[in-house]
Design a protein around this nucleic acid. Structure first.
Lengths: 196, 196, 196, 196
DNA sequence: GATGAATGAGTATTCATTCAT
DNA sequence: CATGAATGAATACTCATTCAT
């Protein structure tokens, strides 16, 4: 009997790793990092505790990979480096795209929000998150400016807060406001703010 | 024993309880509920582990009292039950008051946000929080309506999100936007949205 | 009910700490550091695993305290700093005292020997041990020299090896040579070597 | 398949077994039996964990074979069964040969010493070791006797201890005394002891 | 009221060993 | 012959909680 081929092993590893990360994401997002035990993850994934450590060095490493994975999955196709300034249509698309990303990665966002609130869990996360957000601020500012806002800094604050808040509502209390409706209203509000 | 001593004992109890809760709030807010141990609380409070259980039945009870205490401390002097509708001045005062409450209870808010993200830690918290928020929504809605908004529901969503987001920014990343400035800009934005 | 007095607590701590260290010494000496588990220690000491950590930060700390404790207990009353040179009587007493220390601290010696062979277990132990041995080498050398040896360095090597070997035999295979007899023969041999 | 292939397979098996044992010896000697994992052995040998179990039933069996292998490798060409008594030259050669064996099998000796100190790791090792040593004792005794010692038992003790000690020094702290020098001094000391 | 020793269930992690391929 | 995924029991360590004093 020949041993499994390298590809076979790779496939197994990849699948199982994804399985573990999927389960971990779910549990971390729902119950928090500390309140989630490796036992729970293993049980829910239908594997033994020991196997988890065949794929990850530690519980923290699972979180780490989940974070980078999350960042990638959220921001990878997110070309924000516009040379010129967004048209209105582009801006609307941008916001809608954001909401779509939110809908598609609800658990990642939930995890991210909770990590923002407990900086010590993943030391560098906070910085990475801000870094990722920086170009978005710039793009928003440029757009606001281009649209002739009388107070671009102020409008940036208001709009940023509104978006962040909409995201938080969606993640934490999706039943309070219907997400699709809110999305539209937020977009409208952006223009009202800019056009003052 | 003079009758006074009974009162004195009571005072001592009250003080000590407050001491414990203060320390616990600090630690819960900073490191999260699960990452905080009774030992840490006791040590930081300068008392013995055992004594904690003289005042609280369990770690969860500390959290529970912290929550109700937090609600009270935040909302107690917050007379929101206006029969009529707010004037513009009253509305501005209302927002400002909200921000002031935030500043004065930063740790409570941090704790609250983190609890929103981990509903299982304090089962009923989420509901209580929504309950507390309900009259605020109503008041906001009435004001928006009275001001002649063409889409009061939509504006409510936008404004609620904006406030929630402003609070989140203040709690999690106070260095991103200066709070006092943001406060002013948020107020302006509210009117832009309503009058929009 | 007033709480236990500080002294009472101190007594309890002292006693229990000694109990744990005694048991740990026994097991470490007999089975080695790695082969001994905290469970075994706790069980043999008649306490819970958890309590062990009320007294020691870690398994390694138990070993650490055992080492310093062992060094003290072996070398504390061991005044080796003779200004002049030992007389023959003093030298004989010195060797006998050494053997007595061995007999009184058999387990410590066993532990020490095993640590010498696995330097990574307690990093600095090896150095500390050599440091402790240094003055002994010097004293031996001075004595050998004073007695008119023609090759003091060589005799030092032979005698040191002989003593180390005698100790090893005593610790590891006490049934091979009766210790009291060996003690006497070793002393004789020392003189034969020096005068040789 | 030609008949040769059977032999080739055998050769491969033998080589691989030796590879594993070599690596295991190194790690056991340096870090101890318990602190060495099969994973480490496999990794350092460049093979899979599973393969190890194709050659050995268990980790203990590796140790077992290492012990017998070590005994053989140390004592195999060591014809100690002299009918008559050793001449002085033969005795010197004997000691030198012993030191050479030590130099050539440093790791085995390190392992052996550590096993002497943890009898439970390899149950029967202690006895085997003593058995191997027995003829040496006899030979030494005969030589001492033939040389006209006035106290052959006593001299045997002293010399045995000295040799054991010299070996321990060489294995554990080779920097304390230069081995080649010590070898010579030990030989001299033997004669001084015997000739009293 | 107050102490801290004591417990026991739980946590992350390791590792010898098995087994399908 | 060879692989490494998978297991399960064990390990060091933590912590909410109890309790004698």
């Amino acid at each position: 009997m020949s041993p499994r081929s390298a590809k076979q092993f790779d496939d197994i590893r990849k699948q199982k790793k994804e399985l573990i990360m999927g389960v971990a994401l779910e549990l971390f997002a729902e119950n928090g990092f500390h309140a989630t035990s490796i036992s729970q993850i293993a049980k829910k994934a239908g594997i033994s505790k020991g196997l988890t450590y065949n794929y990850f060095e530690s519980k923290k490493e699972i979180l780490g990979e989940l974070i980078t994975h999350g960042f990638n999955s959220i921001f990878e196709n997110f070309d924000i480096n516009h040379d010129g300034v967004l048209t209105e249509e582009e801006f609307i698309f941008f916001i809608k795209h954001n909401f779509k990303l939110l809908r598609d990665n609800m658990q990642h966002w939930k995890l991210f929000f909770s990590l923002l609130l407990q900086p010590k869990v993943a030391d560098s996360f906070s910085n990475d998150y801000k870094e990722k957000g920086a170009p978005m601020f710039k793009m928003l500012f440029d757009f606001i400016n281009a649209k002739g806002s009388k107070d671009p800094e102020g409008d940036l604050m208001a709009i940023s807060a509104m978006l962040e808040g909409a995201f938080l509502y969606s993640v934490v209390a999706p039943d309070v406001f219907p997400m699709e409706v809110m999305e539209e209203k937020i977009i409208n509000a952006c223009f009202k703010i800019i056009n003052g």
